[in-house]
Simulated assay, not measured.
Amino acid sequence: MSNKPFQFKEFSIQQDKTAMKVGTDGVLLGAWVQVNSEVFSVLDIGAGTGLIALMVAQKSNAEVIDAIELNDDAYEQTVDNFERSSWGDRLFCYHASLQEFVDEIDDEYDLIISNPPFYTSTYKEISEERAMARHTESLTYYELLEGTSKLLSEIGSCAFIIPFSEEAYFIELAKQQKLFPNRITRVKGTENSPIKRSLLQFSFTENTTIINELVIEIERHQYTSEYINLVKDFYLKM
């Protein structure tokens, strides 16, 4: 995958230092997550390049947007991308693991967001380089959700993108942390292809879950109107 900068409408992502490149999953999550007007503080767990935090900065008025990243190269890349953006005064990246961050930080966040490393059934889907970039640093879904529940404000929400095959397991683990799914969008490449990803947004409030599907393409490089509407504020060619 290219090391060239990835240009979005309002910011650019440098990705030459890290194996974790800009991908559809991160863009989907950043575009899909609901950020209500009361959100003051946001945390991106596992920043990679800082993509999702930058998308949230563009689409919201949140005053504090923090990120954490353990990988040395990815941390440096995220800091660089934050500093190059128009929202550098709102963005900050911590060089730490989630476990270290939970132990050291007393703050709570109104929105927590993560595109976690896929370490289970989809591990073989990603390149060996990308897998190794996160293999020793990946956290289990249990650790991710436990840490999220400790850092999330009482009225806050958290959002993730995971393989669809792990959706039921992930929701069950979330319930153990008293996190309940409020929104679920299941993502398919085309109308006739299997569901590949699940976008999930949770809170401590148990309500009726809004469930829908998103199809990305009608055919190769011909995108559905639903997908275009979702990402048009970010992608240059949409």
Rank of each mutant, 00 (worst) to 15 (best):
P5N: 03
E10Q: 14
E10I: 02
F11N: 07
I13Y: 00
Q14M: 13
Q15S: 07
K17W: 07
V22M: 06
V22R: 06
G23V: 10
G23Q: 08
V27I: 15
L28I: 02
L29T: 12
L29R: 04
A31R: 03
Q34Y: 10
N36L: 03
N36I: 05
S41Y: 03
I45L: 06
G48C: 07
G48E: 00
G50K: 01
G50W: 00
L51M: 03
L54H: 02
M55W: 01
M55P: 06
V56P: 01
V56Q: 00
S60V: 10
S60H: 07
S60A: 11
E69R: 05
D73A: 14
D73W: 10
A74V: 04
Y75W: 13
Y75F: 15
E76A: 13
E76W: 11
S86M: 11
W87E: 10
R90D: 05
R90E: 04
L91F: 04
Y94H: 15
H95D: 10
S97K: 05
L98C: 06
E100A: 14
F101V: 04
V102I: 11
I105M: 12
D107L: 12
E108P: 00
E108I: 04
I112V: 14
I113E: 01
I113H: 01
S114L: 03
S114R: 00
P116E: 02
P117E: 02
P117T: 06
P117C: 04
F118C: 05
S121T: 13
S121D: 14
T122M: 12
Y123C: 05
I126Y: 11
S127M: 07
E129A: 15
A133W: 01
R134D: 04
T136R: 12
S138N: 12
Y142W: 15
Y142D: 15
S149P: 04
K150M: 12
S153T: 09
C158I: 07
P163I: 03
F164T: 03
S165E: 13
E166G: 06
E166T: 07
A168E: 15
I171L: 14
E172T: 08
L173G: 03
K175I: 06
F180A: 08
N182G: 08
R186E: 09
V187N: 00
K188F: 09
E191G: 08
E191R: 15
N192A: 09
K196I: 10
L199P: 06
L199M: 13
F202H: 00
F202T: 01
F202D: 01
F204G: 01
N207W: 01
N207F: 07
N207G: 05
N207Y: 06
T208W: 02
T209Y: 08
I211R: 13
L214G: 05
V215W: 09
V215N: 09
I216S: 02
E217T: 09
I218Y: 07
E219I: 08
H221I: 07
Q222R: 13
T224A: 12
I228E: 14
I228G: 05
Y235T: 09
K237M: 10
M238H: 12
